[in-house]
Each structure stands twice: as C-alpha cells, then as structure tokens.
Amino acid sequence: MAVPSYAGPLERTWYYTFRFLCAAIFIFLIAPILVIVPLSFNAEPYFSFTQGMLTLDPDAYSLRWYEEFLTSDRWLESIKNSVIIAFFSTILSAALGTLAALGLNRSELPFKGVIMGLLISPMIVPLIIAAAGMFFFYSKLGIAQSYIGLILAHTALGTPFVVITVTATLSGFDHTLIKAGASLGATPTYTFFKVTMPLIMTGVISGALFAMMTSFDEVIVAIFIAGVEQRTIPLQMWSGIREQISPTILAVATILITFSIIMLSTVEILRRRSDRIRGIS
C-alpha cells in the first residue's frame, strides 16, 4: 500500500497520518508486554522503572524476583498443580473434541445445529456464571476442591477450541480417501489411524494447545472450586496481585510470556502446515 503517484498533498498527509495512527495502535497492543519484561529484572520491590534502570546501571537490575519465584514453595507447588491439571484436561479435551468433530463432520448427524451450539456453549457463557454453577454442583457431587473437579471443569472449557479447530481442518478433508482405504481392504480403525489421523493431526494439536492455554490461564473457575491443595499459577498470581503486589508476579509474567511466544509459534507453524496440506496457500 504505497502512496499512489497521483495523490495530492492532502492525500499524502492523510497517508502518513494513517500510518502513524496504526503505529500508535500497535504500540498500544504490545506495550504492556514490552514493559513487563524489563520491570521483572528490577532490583527494587517496585512496579516502576527506577532512576538506575533508566541510566542502565547494572546494579539496578537483578534476578532476585526470579530467585524468589523459584525458591518459593507456594509458587513451585502452583507450577506443579497447573501442569498436572493442564496435562489431563488437555488430553481429555483433545480426545473428546476430536471424536465429536469427526461426528459433526458427517452429513448424517441429526440436530447438527443444536449439538454444535451445545458444544460451543462453554466458550459463550460468561465464566463467572459457569464457575458459580460448578461451585454448587461440584460441591454437591463432592468433587469441589479436588484435582478431578478442576480437571473436569477445565476440560469442559477447553473442548470448544478442539471442536472448532478440528472441524475446520476436516472441512477440507477429502472423504474419498476413506472410501479408497476401505476398498483396499483396510478396516475402519486402520483407515482412521493411517489415513484420517495424520491429515487432521495439525488441527488436533493446535486445538489441544488452545485447550492447554485455556487451562493454564484459567482463574475464575479455579477461584471457586480449587482448594488450598490445588492452587494453580493463575490463582497464585490473582491472590498475589490482590494482596501484596510484588515484582515476583512480573517475573512469573515474563516466564509466561516466553511460554506464549513458544505456543504462538507452534500454532502458527501448524496452521501453515495444515494450509499447505489442504492446498490453501
């Protein structure tokens, strides 16, 4: 989008103003993330840049908040909990979601619209409502304040992502491949693992990553149904921000940002690969 040669001075001015405007919005988008990383190396227990940091004095920077993070039992415990809960809920969401997406892709399925609406609902219903409902219901079942309760809740919240990504991958799926497999004597299970699975794998993995991020980042349901034993990283951050605000949170945040960059790159690579396989780009 360059300035066309016939553009008058007014249009030229507008063109540069527009570029400037967009640059400002991009800065708005990325600034909070850029600000947090240097602040997490602050030697002082403040949330702002000190004089020393601005003059790049090495003494003003330190790793003390990272040390605090890695030596605190509460934080380490929360990492363990988050990993356990995210691991199981991701696997469950991926398995249930993929199966459902395969069924939704079949034209014979009755009540498709209703079923799709139902399966997407955990994404639509405000989390506070889901959390309140789960608190009552899971307490009644006796699985509140337990790993099982949190894993089930996070699985429910993660499945819509798997359903959506796998359905999207399947939309370009060539069904004659399955018939070809069958005509060559393969059993349905064999065809599934040898033909279908490799082709939809990218969708499954990116859906699973979305589900994992959902579980890893979820705090509202955790506030309501996690017990003291099940404190997750977001829950620990939540109480940290509310009670005693310390830059340890910024250190955790920086680690989480690194984590999301890895996730983002993985999903992006998978998406390109899937597009290539389906011949879109």
């Binding site: 249930l96 459902a100 399925l109 219903v125 309140a132 219901f137 899971y138 429910a156």
Partner: peptide
Amino acid sequence: RNKIRASMLVAPLVIFIIVTFVAPIGNM
C-alpha cells in the same frame, strides 16, 4: 446405521458437556 455411527462419535462429548457444564448451570 450411519446416523447412529455419527451420533456415537458425538455422544461422549455431548454427555460430558451436559454433566460437567450444562447441569451445573441448570442447578444454578
């Protein structure tokens, strides 16, 4: 048979969502 097969694939998640998500909201 095809209809049943398709429904069988969707059923586990539908049941799961109803039990873990819809029922709590209904209870509320």
